[in-house]
């Protein structure tokens, strides 16, 4: 058995197999063993990773002439040598069956909706109509950061959050509220480095105020169940809850660049 996997072809098969197991199951189950949250990866990403690994393997076996010959030798033998007849017959049967199964699997009717390409951060408008008046978003900072007591704003934001946002976004702001399981896609996790940590407060204001119904047409479909909070909260309440979210999640809001600032 060992001699079958000692050559470059055998090693390639082993690497490909191990890579598959790590990507399909390892990513989902190993991090939780160390207390790190994880989950299964979608087929689209698995395919992308596996193609990359396969390309890498092909490059490895072919950049050196000796290795390339050793890699091809068992394949060549399986195709032409009389003593490999059984292997040949098995390959002639198995390969078409495998291709057939994959084809069947990809075309068989399914009740699942097709995967959707959903952009999580659609471009915000330059200005919005907020509660009947026009409001500029570009360059806007959270006004509560420069007036009044930060402590009071934080407490007010916490009240707004616990009264309105908690059921979906959860106590830990990780998108795991009591009702979270009822939504698909689930509520955003503010702990995630890819959500509010990447955004300006004016962007978050736009999303809170306009919710799912206010999402732009580009990049549809939108399945967000987020209500348009401008119908239920005042402007100050929205700004205070935003302040609370950043404070509680431990993120700094993205800031606007000053004129002439270089990075």
């Amino acid at each position: 058995m060992r001699k079958h996997f000692s050559g470059p072809l055998g090693k390639s098969v082993v690497i490909l197999g191990v890579a598959y197991l790590l990507l399909e199951f390892g990513i989902a189950y190993i991090p939780p063993l160390f207390g790190v949250d994880s989950g299964p990866i979608p087929d689209s990403v698995l395919l992308q990773y596996m193609v990359t690994v396969a390309i890498g393997i092909l490059l490895w076996v072919s950049f050196n002439e000796t290795l390339w010959e050793e890699f091809k030798a068992p394949l060549h033998a399986a195709m032409v040598e009389p003593r490999q007849r059984r292997t040949r017959v098995a390959l002639i049967v198995l390969v078409p069956v495998l291709v057939g199964l994959m084809t069947f699997n990809s075309v068989r009717p399914s009740i699942a909706a097709p995967p959707s390409l959903r952009s999580i951060h659609p471009a915000p408008p330059g200005q919005i109509d907020f509660q009947g008046r026009s409001m500029e978003l570009a360059g806007v900072e959270n006004p509560l950061r420069s007036v009044g007591s930060p402590e009071e704003h934080y407490l007010e934001g916490r009240r707004v959050y616990y009264q309105n946002c908690l059921p979906c976004h959860g106590d830990g702001l990780a998108g795991r509220g009591h009702y979270a399981q009822g939504f698909n896609p689930g509520p955003a996790s503010f702990q995630d480095v890819g959500t509010i940590a990447q955004l300006t407060e004016s962007y978050v204001f736009w999303r809170v105020a306009k919710g799912g119904p206010g999402l732009p047409n580009e990049g549809a479909p939108w399945n967000s169940a987020m209500p348009a909070w401008e119908d239920f909260l005042t402007e100050d309440e929205i700004w205070s809850v935003i302040l609370f979210m950043y404070e509680q999640a431990g993120h700094e809001p993205r800031t606007w660049e000053e004129e002439g600032e270089e990075h």
């Binding site: 949250d37 087929d43 909706a113 959707s116 996790s189 959500t195």
Partner: peptide, 17 residues
């Protein structure tokens, strides 16, 4: 890119890990 079942399993379109 994920279907609804995959999104539900991940807990959103962002993968937690």
């Amino acid at each position: 890119i994920a279907d609804r079942e995959e999104i539900a399993a991940m807990g959103g379109t962002h993968h937690p890990f």
